[in-house]
Write a protein that binds this DNA or RNA. Structure first.
Lengths: 279, 279
DNA sequence: GAGTGGTCTAGACCACTGT
DNA sequence: CAGTGGTCTAGACCACTCC
C-alpha cells in the first residue's frame, strides 16, 4: 500500500476517471438504461482501487447521469422529462375557476393546481391541519403581532404508480380570516377542493397578485429521502405569497420541489412602447 | 485495521457525526466566522479516523455551513445575503428605459440589468461576440432552418472587490436581424450599452413579452470553479426568451447563476373578479 | 517549514439486490 | 446466497496555507 503513483493532489485521479466515464457514456459505450460493469471490474480496467471507482460512480449519480441503489445494478440513467410549471397561467386559471359553480370546479384540488398535474396522475397523503402561533418572520409577512394564530396545512404530493414524492408544501393563513368560513377549520383531512383562490373567496378575500420567491439549496436529509433524490441534487425552495389589492398578505405557502425534474416557467408581459409612458 | 465496530451500513457513522457537528454549531459551540478544530483533533475527539471526519467536513462545506480551502483553516461560514432578482420589474424597467435618450440611458449595461446590481458594484470581463450556425434546438426556437446564422454574445459578471463570479450568460439573436444595425456587429468588445431591449429597438423590433425558464442542476466543473461555489452547490440555469407581439422569438439568453446566493422573485398580477369573465 | 485539508490505496466488513 | 455497492479504518502521501 506504499509508494502510490500520485496521491494527495486535489482529486486528480477521480476527476480524470470521471471525465473518461462521461466520455465513454457520451460515446455510447454504455447506453441509457444499460448496465454499467461492476465496480470491481472497472477497478481493474481503470487500474485503480475499488474505492476510487466507487467515488466516481457516486459523483455521476449525484449528477443524475447514473442510477442504482445499494447492492443493485448501476445503470445509465434515462433522463426524465422535467415537469413544467407555468406559474402565471396557473395562478390566473386558479383564480378564474374559483368563481365557477361547485360542480364544475369541484374536482380541482389545491395540490393539483400547485403541482401542475392532472388529478388522475396524482395521489395524496392526507392534508394535515394545525394551528400555530406566528413567529417573527411570519408576523412581519402578515403584518400582525408575533404569536397571532395561523392556520397551517401540510401536504404531500406523489405521482400515481410511483413512490417518488413530487413535492411537499406547507401553507399558512391567518386563523382570524380562515374562521370566517367554519368549513375550512372543520373539514376532514382530505385535500381542500378548489384551490387556495377558492378558499379565499369563501372568506371574502380577493387575491390581487401573487409573488413567487424562488431559491435553491441542498436537500435536508428527510427531504432527500422523501423526494427520493440522490444526495447532492438540490431542491427548489419556493415561497408563494398571495396578496390582496391593499398589499395585505392573505396566504403563503412554502414548497419543496425536486430540482432535477422541475422546470419553472414565468411569462412576463410588457407594456407597449407606443402607448406613451404608462403609469 | 481489523474488526471495525460497524462498517458497511450506509453512512451511519458519518450521518451521526454530521448531525452532532450541526447541533454543536447550532448550539454555538462553534460560532459563525470562528475556526473549527483541525481534522486530526476532531478525529480523536469523535473517536474515529481522520478520513471520516474529513468526509463530514466536506459534506457541511457543500451544504454551505462551513468554508475553507485546501490547507487553510476551516471556519463556520457566515451566511451571505442572497442577491434578489425581481425579474418582471427588471424587464419592464429595461423596456421603458430603452426609449430614453442616449445620455440618460447610456450608463445602464445589459449585464447590470441582467444581474440586478448597480454599475458601481460590478466589473466585467469583455463581452465575446461570435457568429454561430443554429443547431436544431435553436432553429426550432427561432422558427428558422438549422444552420441559420446567429449572433452570439458571451459575458461574465464579477462583483467588484471579489474574485467571485456572479454569473455568466450567453445570448443569441438572429444575425439577419442584428445586421439591421451594423453597430451591433462592429462594436468593440465592451458590454452593450442600454441592455437587450434597447438593442432590439435599434433593429426595429419591439419585445412584447419575456419568458423565463428556470431549472437547477449541479455545476459543471468549469462553472464550479468560475463561480467559486463549493462542489455540490447547485446552480440556477435560467433561459430568458424575448418575443414580439407575433410570438416570434427575438432573442434568448442562457444564464448560470450560483444557487446559494441567488433569489428569483416573480410578481404575477391577477385579473379582478368583478370585471366579468375576461378574454 | 510545520500544520492542515484532501486524496489515494488497501483491506475488512456490511446491507442490500436480484436471480 | 452469491454478487454488488457502500462505508469504515488504516496509513502514506501530496499541495496548499499561514500558525
Amino acid at each position: 500500500m506504499e509508494t502510490t503513483e500520485t496521491a494527495g493532489s486535489p482529486g486528480v485521479r477521480v476527476d480524470e476517471l470521471e471525465r473518461q466515464l462521461l466520455a465513454a457514456i457520451d460515446r455510447g459505450d454504455y447506453k441509457p438504461g444499460g448496465r454499467l460493469p461492476p465496480i470491481s471490474d472497472l477497478a481493474v480496467e481503470w487500474e485503480t482501487h475499488k474505492n476510487t471507482v466507487s467515488k466516481v460512480i457516486q459523483r455521476l449519480k449525484t449528477m443524475g447521469v447514473l442510477t442504482g441503489a445499494q447492492g443493485g445494478t448501476t445503470r445509465v440513467r434515462i433522463q426524465p422529462e422535467r415537469i413544467v410549471r407555468r406559474q402565471p397561467e396557473r395562478y390566473r386559471e386558479e383564480k378564474r375557476s374559483a368563481l365557477l359553480p361547485d360542480g364544475e370546479r369541484g374536482q380541482i384540488g389545491a395540490t393539483e393546481l400547485d403541482t401542475g398535474l392532472s388529478k388522475s396522475d396524482l395521489s395524496f397523503a392526507p392534508t394535515v391541519r394545525s394551528i400555530e402561533p406566528a413567529d417573527d418572520e411570519q408576523a412581519a409577512l402578515f403584518g400582525v403581532a408575533p404569536g397571532t394564530q395561523l392556520l397551517a396545512r401540510q401536504y404531500y404530493t406523489r405521482a400515481r404508480n410511483s413512490e417518488r414524492l413530487l413535492g411537499n408544501g406547507k401553507s399558512y393563513l391567518l386563523h382570524s380570516v380562515a374562521e370566517r368560513n367554519p368549513a375550512l377549520l372543520n373539514e376532514s383531512d382530505k385535500p381542500w377542493e378548489g384551490g387556495t383562490m377558492h378558499q379565499l373567496l369563501t372568506v371574502d378575500a380577493e387575491p390581487a397578485y401573487v409573488v413567487d420567491r424562488v431559491t435553491v439549496r441542498p436537500p435536508r436529509p428527510e427531504e432527500a429521502e422523501a423526494l427520493a433524490i440522490q444526495a447532492g441534487v438540490s431542491v427548489f425552495v419556493f415561497r408563494k405569497l398571495t396578496y390582496d389589492a391593499n398589499d395585505q398578505l392573505l396566504e403563503y405557502s412554502d414548497f419543496v420541489l425536486p430540482g432535477d425534474i422541475t422546470e419553472l416557467v414565468y411569462r412576463v408581459d410588457l407594456p407597449t412602447w407606443k402607448e406613451g409612458t404608462d403609469a
